[in-house]
Amino acid sequence: MQIFVKTLTGKTITLEVEPSDTIENVKAKIQDKEGIPPDQQRLIFAGKQLEDGRTLSDYNIQKDSTLHLVLR
């Protein structure tokens, strides 16, 4: 499925993911596309910070959802 990741600069990254993918996995995909190390990434969805060990389906993230990427 496709999800979107919006950065603070207003750029939107499109990712191909599975509901069973972990947040860690998603961060690795963002690193592949953007070169941002996962340890600098914070992903936010519906006002919640997403934890590495959980999956997209744990957070009820569905296709065409938009996550927000904050760098630390």
Rank of each mutant, 00 (worst) to 15 (best):
M1R: 04
M1Q: 07
M1T: 10
M1Y: 14
M1A: 03
Q2R: 06
Q2V: 11
I3N: 00
I3R: 00
F4G: 07
F4T: 05
V5R: 00
V5A: 04
V5S: 01
K6R: 07
K6G: 10
T7H: 03
T7V: 10
T7M: 12
L8M: 13
L8K: 14
T9L: 12
T9E: 12
T9P: 09
G10V: 04
G10N: 12
G10E: 13
K11W: 12
K11I: 15
K11Q: 03
K11N: 05
K11E: 08
T12I: 07
T12V: 15
I13P: 00
T14R: 04
T14P: 13
T14V: 15
T14I: 07
T14G: 06
T14N: 05
L15G: 00
L15S: 01
L15H: 01
E16A: 04
E16V: 04
E16F: 11
E16M: 10
V17R: 00
V17E: 01
E18F: 12
P19T: 08
P19Y: 10
P19F: 14
S20L: 08
S20K: 05
S20E: 15
S20D: 10
S20P: 15
D21V: 04
T22E: 10
T22V: 14
T22S: 07
T22P: 14
I23H: 02
I23K: 01
I23V: 09
E24N: 04
N25I: 13
N25R: 09
V26K: 00
V26H: 00
V26Y: 00
V26R: 00
K27Y: 04
K27V: 03
K27D: 00
A28Y: 09
A28W: 05
A28S: 08
K29G: 08
K29E: 11
I30R: 00
I30M: 06
Q31F: 06
Q31N: 12
Q31V: 05
D32Y: 06
D32F: 04
K33H: 13
K33L: 04
E34V: 06
E34W: 10
E34G: 07
G35R: 08
G35A: 05
G35W: 05
G35S: 08
I36M: 09
I36P: 07
I36N: 11
P37S: 13
P37A: 11
P37E: 11
P37G: 09
P38L: 06
P38S: 08
P38N: 13
P38G: 11
D39Y: 15
D39E: 09
Q41F: 08
Q41A: 11
Q41H: 04
R42S: 07
R42L: 14
R42K: 13
R42G: 07
L43G: 00
L43W: 01
L43V: 09
L43Q: 00
L43R: 00
I44L: 08
I44P: 00
I44T: 08
F45Q: 04
F45P: 00
F45K: 02
A46K: 14
G47Q: 08
G47L: 09
G47F: 10
G47H: 15
G47P: 01
G47K: 03
K48E: 11
K48A: 09
K48Y: 14
K48R: 13
Q49F: 10
Q49H: 04
Q49P: 11
Q49W: 09
L50W: 01
E51F: 04
E51G: 04
E51W: 05
E51A: 05
D52E: 06
D52S: 08
D52F: 09
D52Y: 03
G53M: 05
G53T: 11
G53E: 12
R54H: 15
R54D: 07
R54G: 08
R54E: 10
L56D: 00
L56Q: 00
S57R: 05
S57A: 09
S57G: 14
S57F: 10
S57L: 12
D58G: 11
D58E: 07
D58K: 04
D58V: 07
Y59E: 07
Y59I: 03
Y59K: 01
N60I: 13
I61Y: 01
I61V: 07
Q62E: 14
Q62K: 13
Q62W: 10
Q62P: 09
K63L: 04
K63F: 14
K63Q: 07
K63V: 05
K63H: 15
K63M: 15
D64H: 05
D64A: 10
D64M: 04
S65Q: 10
S65V: 09
S65F: 12
T66P: 02
L67N: 01
L67T: 01
L67W: 01
L67R: 01
L67M: 09
H68I: 03
H68P: 01
L69Y: 02
L69N: 01
L69E: 01
L69M: 04
L69Q: 02
V70K: 03
V70D: 06
V70G: 08
V70Q: 04
V70W: 03
L71Y: 07
R72M: 10
R72V: 15
R72D: 08
